[in-house]
Amino acid sequence: MSNIPANLKYTESHEWIRVEADGTLTVGVTDHAQEALGDVVYLELPEAGRTLAAGEACAVIESVKAASDIYAPVAGEVVESNQAAVDAPESVNADAYAAWLFKIRPDAAADLGKLLDAAGYEAVVANA
């Protein structure tokens, strides 16, 4: 079974979301997603300042098997992208929860209520 930390939020499209003390959200791909993708060889991340709609494809993760879009979990503005992950895409395979991809300042905190908790995401993975 994939590693699904209880302290994070999740999307059905396999992004994890950590709520930071300043209200920003750190976003990455789940352990399940990196397992399914295989060896990650390339990341394309959104630039700081970009405004995203909830569910908008905003980044690309490529592995030796496939390329997949990464979606914004909520509407908001990108405040930072993880250049270290771009420079070493294999870090996503090494630890999917340490290799965050981008940070977003949500337009509405209430949007967090639409995200899945660990049990909800576990059910998505189990039914995949």
Rank of each mutant, 00 (worst) to 15 (best):
A6H: 13
A54W: 10
N7K: 14
P5T: 08
V29Q: 04
A128C: 13
E80T: 04
S13T: 14
V64E: 10
N93T: 09
T11L: 01
D107R: 15
R18K: 15
Q83A: 11
L101M: 15
V19L: 15
H14C: 02
L52W: 07
A98T: 15
K103A: 11
N127H: 10
A119Y: 05
S13A: 12
V64W: 10
L115P: 01
A108P: 07
D22H: 12
V86F: 01
A53K: 15
A118P: 01
A88N: 13
K65D: 11
V86Y: 00
S2P: 15
Y42W: 02
H32Q: 13
A54N: 12
D87A: 14
S63I: 09
G76F: 03
V125G: 04
G49W: 03
A84H: 07
D39V: 08
P46H: 00
S63Y: 07
L45F: 01
A48V: 05
E35H: 12
E80F: 02
N82R: 01
G28M: 09
A67G: 14
A59W: 01
A110E: 15
D95V: 08
V27M: 10
V41Q: 01
A88V: 05
P5M: 07
L115A: 04
V74G: 07
V19T: 14
S63C: 11
S13C: 03
E90L: 02
Q83R: 06
G49M: 05
D87V: 08
R18W: 07
S2N: 10
H14Y: 04
A72V: 03
V125Q: 04
G49V: 05
V27Q: 07
L37I: 03
K9Q: 09
N7T: 13
R50V: 13
T30L: 12
L52M: 11
A94V: 14
T24R: 13
S13L: 09
V125H: 06
G76W: 02
S2F: 05
